[in-house]
């Protein structure tokens, strides 16, 4: 169990350092089961910091999302480090960003938070609808304890955690300058049961499945924006000349959009499941990513976001890569 006082003390100590610009963590949200990314710039902010099974956001996104304002003439750019709290999956995003040189190691200070699984708000709201009061949650002996308005409730972990947590093989941060709490047991399997059921269907059935899902896409781009690996200065989806993907919203363009998004994460997706969590129309986006994770692992024995010294998968090759599909 995590001691919040210790976490906050660590945060205060961290942001008091001269070489830290601010700390990115989580705070309780405005209602119910929500939490929100929290930017800690002073000691007061640190008091609101939390880490609980409700802390769903992958904060690594903010390392690359932060807007760089022009430095006034004569002033020195602020080169202080950004401190960031990461769960296991989030830490893989940091590593992958380092691999791709999206960020520099000396510009981040990583606070690792071993994680026993994050609550899927949709699953929880099915069991406990209409909760306005802020709810706190914690892990305890393999269960998730919630302080609901009606009283304390314990839920078996596997019933309410996100799908990504059921298959998670890296609950402990793979990179950290300092760790809060103790390492947790790895429970996820290396298998791909979550997508096997779809793979065994025939092509028509698979298309029927995806057509239905893709058809409901509203192109809000939240899946792209929330993704810690989507940090191109100009995204292919935004380009107009040439327009790789038209702005019109229909099955054709939506499919192209989702294929582009998934493919651009091939060998890069660190399975944080944020795309799926934020999708307002509940498209099972991580199925696409998991399919590629599976292929990358089986064909190239590669797992992204583990080794900061690794080379990006698609920027390299082996002469004996599998080529059974080539005529």
């Amino acid at each position: 169990m995590l001691d919040l006082d210790k976490l906050r003390a660590l945060a205060k100590e961290t942001i008091s350092r001269d070489d830290i610009k601010y700390l990115i963590g989580w705070r309780q949200g405005t209602y119910g089961f929500r939490t929100s990314p929290h930017f800690v710039g002073n000691l007061e902010d640190a008091e609101q910091l939390i880490f609980s099974p409700l802390c769903s956001s992958n904060l690594a996104t903010y390392l690359t999302l932060a807007e760089k304002r022009p430095v006034p003439r004569g002033a020195q750019p602020d080169t202080r480090r950004v401190a960031i709290m990461v769960k296991g999956c989030d830490s893989r995003a940091v590593v992958q960003q380092l691999v791709e040189q999206g960020i520099k190691r000396e510009s981040v200070y990583v606070i690792g938070c071993p994680c026993e699984g994050i609550i899927d708000r949709r699953k929880l709201e099915e069991k406990v609808p209409h909760t306005l009061e802020r709810v706190e949650a914690r892990w305890e002996n393999g269960k998730i304890i919630l302080d609901l308005p009606a009283g304390r409730a314990a839920f078996p972990r596997d019933e309410i955690v996100a799908g990504k947590c059921l298959t998670c093989r890296y609950p402990n941060p793979v990179i950290a300058d300092v760790t809060v709490g103790e390492d947790v047991e790895v429970r996820g399997s290396a298998g791909f049961e979550d997508i096997n059921w779809l793979e065994v269907k025939n092509a028509q059935e698979r298309w029927a499945f995806w057509r239905d899902k893709v058809n409901s896409c509203i192109r809000c781009y939240s899946c792209r924006n929330v993704c810690p690996m989507c940090y191109c200065a100009e995204c292919i989806l935004d380009k107009l000349n040439p327009a790789w993907i038209q702005r019109s919203v229909n099955v054709s363009e939506n499919t192209a959009f989702q294929l582009a998004r998934a493919f651009h994460l091939a060998g890069r997706c660190i399975e944080c499941g944020e795309c799926e969590r934020v999708c307002p129309v509940e498209i099972p986006l991580s199925h696409l990513n998991r399919k590629l994770v599976k292929e990358v692992s089986e064909q190239f024995a590669f797992t992204p976001g583990i080794d900061p010294e690794a080379k990006p998968l698609l920027a390299g090759y082996r002469p004996n890569d599998r080529e059974a599909f080539i005529l």
Partner: peptide, 16 residues
């Protein structure tokens, strides 16, 4: 600045 710090810049709030 504070409110928008965590904004992802997606279109959910406006499209819906």
């Amino acid at each position: 600045e504070k409110i928008s710090a965590s904004c992802l810049g997606c279109g959910i709030c406006t499209y819906l």
